[in-house]
């Protein structure tokens, strides 16, 4: 080895600092960083720049905490120097919990259509169905009760997951329903179990396991009817909430999305296991006539809408008009 090259090798310092790889002196040379274990692992994407006599490789994206990297530096003279580095691990502390599961009732119909899982912080995607189990009364796991989609049905913030019961098993007369039946049977007890290993968006497990025990009651094959709704009007001049007793539990998301009070600003909420809708106005109520508007897309727990059943009986009259419709209910505040 020529003396000059040996000196250069001796002098080169390779450091992992500030999320980047720094080679001093390195100007005029090249850097390749590999984090994969495979022999043919491609190099990490990133950009190399010169700062004084240092050559700096900044990865396109921050390295994962705890990951090990291999650096190959080739000097301008063609001398190769190799170093390994480890990105400091960040201990991910559990901080996220499952706050609520809708429906909140402890009795669900045999043909329950969906569940909403609300988390306190954004969650990770890609392994939801590994962490959600339905257990029967003996604690045994019910096999494939849910519709498992590649595209997990999260909201944009990653805090609410929608889980559909397998519609092939819920719907009457499709093959899975005939072959293996409904995932849940009336009169039996079940537990929805969410394990703590489910990583949140930071990669930390949940604070604890979540369990929702419930009883299954007879299938709901009736359309919800607004004629059963009872409106409790607040007094004029107050900001007391308007209370609408819906007579049966409704789908939580649709209840908050599709039921409105026309021309009044305020905040809506659901309580009493989603059998009641509350509306608190921003300003005190003025005396007069008000109009509650409900889109026909409102659903009960079994997916029966105001205008049709979840699985339509063809001998019933089917509303063939796919347009969105609104139904109205008037009341007076005195």
């Amino acid at each position: 080895m020529p003396l000059l090259a040996a000196l250069a090798l001796w002098a080169v310092e390779i450091q992992y600092v500030g999320g980047a790889v720094r080679v001093t002196p390195g100007a005029g040379g090249s850097i390749e960083v590999v984090t994969g274990d495979a022999a043919d692992s491609p190099a990490v994407l990133g950009a190399t720049r010169t700062e004084g006599e240092a050559l700096i490789f900044a990865p396109r994206f921050p390295f994962r905490p705890g990951i090990r990297g291999k650096v190959v530096f080739r000097s301008a003279a063609g001398v190769e120097t190799r170093r390994e580095f480890t990105v400091p691990a960040a201990a991910a502390r559990p901080a996220t919990r499952l706050e609520q599961v809708y429906p909140t009732a402890s009795a669900l119909p045999e043909n329950q259509l969906k569940l909403y899982l609300h988390f306190s912080a954004p969650m990770s995607r890609g392994e939801a169905y590994r962490h959600i189990r339905l257990l029967d009364g003996s604690g045994a796991q019910v096999e494939l009760p849910f519709l498992e989609l590649d595209q997990e049905l999260w909201d944009a913030a990653g805090r609410r997951l929608t889980v559909f019961f397998d519609p092939g098993r819920v719907k009457r007369e499709v093959l899975p329903n005939r072959e293996v039946g409904q995932p849940m049977m009336a009169g039996r007890n079940y537990t929805l179990a969410i394990d703590a290993a489910w990583p949140d968006a930071e990669g930390a497990p949940l604070i604890g396991e979540f369990r929702k025990p419930f009883t299954v009651v007879a299938a709901d094959r009736a359309r919800p009817s607004m004629s059963r709704w009872r409106i409790e009007a607040p007094a004029a001049g107050t900001r007391d909430p308007l209370k609408v007793d819906l007579g049966e539990p409704f789908d939580h998301a649709l209840l908050l999305r599709e039921l409105h009070l026309a021309h009044v600003k305020g905040a809506a909420a659901a309580d009493r296991n989603e059998t009641r809708w509350l509306f608190t106005p921003d300003e005190p109520w003025a005396p007069g006539t008000y109009e509650l508007t409900a889109a026909t897309a409102l659903e009960d727990l079994a997916g029966n809408r105001l205008d049709r059943l979840f699985d339509v009986d063809k001998f019933d009259r089917i509303d063939k008009n796919p347009r969105r419709e609104v139904r109205r209910l008037r009341f007076t505040i005195r």
């Binding site: 259509l113 969906k114 989609l149 590649d150 595209q151 997990e152 049905l153 999260w154 909201d155 944009a156 913030a157 609410r160 929608t162 559909f164 519609p167 789908d251 998301a253 649709l254 999305r257 905040a267 897309a297 659903e299 997916g303 979840f310």
Partner: peptide, 30 residues
């Protein structure tokens, strides 16, 4: 107030004779 939580997952896509056909599934309605 607040943002809608409704979102649609695009489950498949294809190109046919000058048209893009897109299948979607809502996280609130089946």
């Amino acid at each position: 107030r607040g943002q809608s939580l409704r979102q649609e997952a695009i489950t498949d896509i294809a190109y046919v004779d000058g048209k893009v056909v897109v299948a979607g599934l809502s996280n609130e309605e089946f």
